[in-house]
Design a protein around this nucleic acid. Structure first.
Lengths: 220, 220
DNA sequence: CAACTATTCAATAAAATAATTGAATAGAGT
DNA sequence: ACTCTATTCAATTATTTTATTGAATAGTTG
């Protein structure tokens, strides 16, 4: 094998993995699987894909070894192969939000306006926790909260928030979080909370980021 | 804009960037540009592409804002937009080498065999430097050495190594490095050196990695 | 201003990717 | 063994990506 041939093979291997990541639907799937394992049907539902289409995308991800499966009863659960997959996805996400003013603007504009609505970073939340009184609110589906959540966080899934909003205190700042910076659950929560007179902001990142940084979490 | 529409846009933006990275030729270009700015002609030459083809790939990278240009005289120099581009490329590279046993095997097999030939990691090199006598040898083209290199490193471009090999000492361990883990210059150097009775190994990573980790370098 | 040259553009053909549909499969539960 | 159901497969079509070729452009140099 000569030099050029070797290089081609090496870069082809890498490109194969990157190509598998480089599709909007599959990126959304990766983002979802960062929360934990899901069945094909659930993945399809969460990403608005047909089951067959979701399955095909999952085959591509599996072919690139980005995800792996485990079987339970009649279901097949897909999960990220290892932590480096999330790390790489995260690096790309950060690069994307950094480079692409368009995308950045999108994230900032959606459901938000003004300084008071600015997302709180993980670092800022850490400081708030140790310094003042805050309520941390997990608005992901209950199932995802069960799997793991920020320590001391309360769980009110976004779809239940309207009717359970009175469980929350009015004098204290509420930090809502969800799956990650591209997830809109926390934005919806903040929007609703502020409408009702609560002092609320969203966490910029999501639970997987918190966990990856090694901060206190309750994991099941 | 509803929730699904927002998500689609956000993931599309990210996928666009990832897609631009997800091509073997463009990956090689990114790897090259991690050394610094190069003209289109030089990039084409180093990657075995036609100039027109290289130019087109560069347009794609520029469209995704991964690279930017600067003009000098008659030439246009391309360079990485910022450090996050290299970080993301690095995360992908690590993920790829980790996931893909094939690729891993390729890298380990090429020009190498046995324990003594195992690449030295940056951490190991750091320890060697502070603890014992080593020669650090930069075998990249002289131009790239000029732009920046590991502190105390000597420069003998791989193409000159055969005739200049007597400049190197025989009692001391020689650590050769080049552009990165996918670059074969250091492997060729080690192969040649060991053939001639020198005690040589390669650095697993490259100069850009060393620099990114903030270790002592001479930059021009 | 003319000549030169680095780079880009435009057009084409070949190849790869993506979504849709409906059928097939495989494995659990009755 | 039969049914039920989650998942995958296969075939089709539309779209996008890639490499090649030769011409065009733009900016410098003499």
């Amino acid at each position: 094998m000569d030099k050029r041939e070797f290089k081609n093979k090496a870069y082809n291997e890498l490109a194969k993995i990157t190509k598998a990541l480089g599709n909007p639907r599959r990126m959304e799937i990766i983002d979802l699987l960062a929360q934990g394992p899901f069945s094909v049907e659930k993945i399809a539902e969460q990403t608005n894909l047909s089951v067959a289409n979701a399955s095909q995308h999952l085959q591509v991800l599996k072919g690139a070894r980005l995800v792996e499966i485990s079987k339970k009863g009649n279901f097949i659960y897909y999960q990220l192969t290892n932590d480096k997959v999330f790390q790489a996805w995260r690096a790309l996400r950060e690069l994307g939000l950094d480079l692409n003013a368009e995308a950045e603007k999108l994230v900032n504009d959606f459901y938000r306006s003004g300084e008071k609505m600015k997302p709180v970073t993980i670092e800022e939340l850490r400081q708030k926790i140790s310094g003042q009184n805050v309520v941390i609110l997990d608005v992901r589906p209950g199932e995802e909260y069960q799997r793991g959540h920020i320590k001391e966080a309360a769980s009110i899934p976004i779809e239940d928030l309207a009717e359970r909003i009175d469980e929350l205190p009015k004098g204290v700042e509420i930090i809502a979080y969800c799956r990650g910076p591209l997830c809109v659950y926390a934005d919806e929560a903040v929007s609703l909370l502020r409408e009702k007179g609560f002092d609320a902001r969203r966490l910029k990142e999501g639970f997987p980021d918190w966990k990856a940084m090694g901060f206190p979490a309750e994991i099941n």
